[in-house]
Amino acid sequence: MPYRWWPATLAALNGIDPLEALQALNADRRLPRAGVALDLPVLSVWARTEAGRPLIVVLRHEGGLEWLIVGALDMTPAQVAEFEAWEASHAPE
């Protein structure tokens, strides 16, 4: 899928390298969650970087296969626990 960065997102990344967000988006195991931000539909993708860092990357669908990256953040401890429970229940065979 083609991803495009919203310039404000790049400027607002706090301790997250843009490559880490892309690694999370391309991870084999991703938990997608539909949501709404600023009254617009978004998709948050919960995943791990290649180094194992749990991140949430927020996307806005632009049509076809195009997605705009509108945010990336570290999971909170509660989100990590929820994600780890999901990982455990979706272990690769």
Results as ranks from 00 to 15, higher is better:
76 T>N: 06
68 L>D: 12
91 A>I: 00
36 V>R: 13
28 D>E: 15
84 E>D: 09
78 A>G: 04
69 I>D: 00
31 L>E: 11
59 L>T: 02
70 V>L: 07
55 L>I: 07
86 W>A: 03
54 P>S: 12
52 G>W: 11
92 P>F: 13
85 A>L: 01
25 L>F: 06
54 P>H: 13
89 S>F: 07
48 R>Y: 12
88 A>C: 01
37 A>Y: 05
23 Q>E: 15
43 L>A: 01
90 H>I: 07
8 A>D: 11
60 R>W: 00
23 Q>D: 15
48 R>M: 08
21 A>H: 08
49 T>I: 15
91 A>L: 09
37 A>T: 01
72 A>R: 01
72 A>F: 00
2 P>H: 14
4 R>V: 13
62 E>M: 13
47 A>D: 05
6 W>I: 04
49 T>V: 10
59 L>R: 02
91 A>F: 04
46 W>V: 04
12 A>N: 15
69 I>W: 02
93 E>W: 13
11 A>T: 14
8 A>N: 10
39 D>Y: 03
93 E>R: 10
85 A>Q: 06
22 L>G: 05
20 E>F: 01
82 E>G: 03
15 G>D: 08
93 E>D: 11
31 L>W: 15
51 A>C: 07
41 P>T: 03
1 M>G: 07
1 M>P: 04
64 G>F: 05
14 N>T: 13
90 H>V: 03
69 I>C: 00
7 P>N: 03
13 L>G: 13
36 V>N: 10
75 M>T: 11
84 E>N: 09
16 I>T: 07
20 E>D: 15
4 R>W: 11
24 A>Y: 10
85 A>V: 02
46 W>R: 04
19 L>D: 15
79 Q>P: 12
83 F>V: 00
50 E>P: 10
16 I>E: 11
15 G>I: 02
72 A>D: 05
16 I>W: 10
56 I>N: 04
51 A>N: 07
62 E>I: 01
29 R>D: 14
6 W>T: 11
30 R>F: 07
68 L>G: 09
27 A>M: 06
54 P>D: 12
27 A>C: 08
57 V>R: 05
66 E>T: 10
75 M>D: 07
55 L>C: 03
62 E>F: 03
